[in-house]
Computed example of a mutant assay.
Amino acid sequence: MLPEINLQGDVDIAALSPLLRGMLLSVAYADGEGGIGLTATGAMNRKFVHWAAVHFLWPGFTAEDLYSMNKVLNESDMPPLWVVRDMARHLKLLRRKKDVLLPTRRGREFLVNPQAFFDLVATDYLYSYVHATEREEEVRARLRWWRMFLNLLNIKARKGCAPMDVVKILYPELAPLSDTEMTIEAWELKSDLQYGVFQRLCWLGLLYEAREGLTLLQDGSFHKTLLWAACLQLGSDTQSDIGVH
C-alpha cells in the first residue's frame, strides 16, 4: 500500500509547494485576465509563459534561469508549466473554450480553498504522473518502492542528503568506488532517483535543494520542508537510522 498523503495543520502550501503555487497562479490568472491565451497549436501563449516565469518563482526555472537560455519563452521552454497544465486539466480546474483556457467552477473552488485539494494533487502527481521524459511503465514500476523511498528520505533528509548518497545505501556494493567510478557505474541509477523521486518531491514541496555556491553540474543537498511532516506519517518517524535489505 502506498503511503497516504493527508495534509494536517495550518501550512502555507502556496509558499512551500511550487506545483500548488503554479496551479493557483494559473487558475487565478485565467480568472482575472479573461483566460489564458492559446496559440494556433494549442500551447499557452508567450504572454502567459513570460508571466508564469516571473511569478511562479519555481526553483531552477525562474525568469532569470529561463531567459539565460532563451531569448523568448514558449510553453515548451518551461517544463514545470507542462505539469501545471496537465494537473489543472486532470482535476478539471481549467477548461478550453476556443483559443483560451478558462477557470471552471471547481477551479474557483480551488482558489478559495487550495488546502482541500492538496491531498488529491499530491497523491496523483507523486505516484501517478508521467513526465514527458518518462514512460508509463517506469512510473508503475516505481509504485512498489515509494514506501521504502519515503521512509529512507524521512531519515536521511533530516540533515540533508544527495541522490548519490541514496544510491550507496540501496546498492552498498558500489560504496567503495571512487567518485569518478560512481559517476560512470551509477549514472542511470542516480538519474532515475534524481528525476523520478527527488524532483517530484521538490516540485511538490516536500523537499528543497540547497544549492548555494554550487555549479550547475554539482548536486545539492536535499532537505525536508515543513510540508513533509504536515502531510506524511511514516513508520520511520521515530527511527534514527534505517536499514535497507
Rank of each mutant, 00 (worst) to 15 (best):
V167W: 13
G196Y: 01
L201R: 01
K190G: 09
R200N: 10
Y171Q: 11
G243M: 06
K190S: 11
A210P: 00
G213T: 04
G213V: 01
W228F: 04
T180A: 12
S240Q: 05
P172F: 06
Q218M: 12
Y195G: 02
E173S: 05
A175C: 00
V166W: 06
V197G: 03
S236W: 09
W187Y: 15
H223P: 03
W203C: 04
K190Y: 05
K224E: 02
E188R: 15
A230L: 02
G205D: 06
Q239V: 04
L204N: 01
A175E: 08
L226K: 13
F222E: 08
S178Q: 01
W203L: 08
T238D: 13
P172E: 09
Q218R: 10
Q199C: 13
Y171T: 12
L189P: 00
G243I: 05
V197S: 04
Q233W: 03
G220W: 02
S240C: 01
V197A: 04
T215R: 13
R211Y: 10
K224S: 02
L214Q: 10
S236H: 07
D237Y: 15
T238M: 09
D219E: 08
Y208E: 15
E173K: 08
L193Y: 06
D241H: 12
Q194Y: 13
L214K: 14
Q239F: 11
I242W: 00
L177I: 00
L226G: 06
M182T: 07
L174K: 00
L177N: 00
L234W: 07
E209R: 10
S178T: 06
L234I: 12
W228I: 03
L207Q: 09
H223L: 14
A186V: 09
E188Q: 15
K168M: 15
A229I: 07
H223I: 10
E173C: 01
K190N: 13
C202S: 05
L207V: 14
Q194H: 14
T238G: 02
Q239D: 09
C202R: 11
K168Y: 15
I184Q: 12
A186K: 14
Y195L: 10
P172S: 09
G235M: 04
S236R: 03
W203S: 08
Y195N: 05
G205L: 05
L204K: 02
L177Q: 00
H223V: 12
L174Y: 05
L174W: 02
W187G: 10
L204P: 03
G243K: 09
L214C: 10
K190T: 11
E209D: 14
D241P: 00
W228V: 03
K224P: 00
Q199P: 04
E188A: 12
V166M: 14
Y171H: 14
T215C: 02
L204D: 01
S240I: 07
Q233C: 03
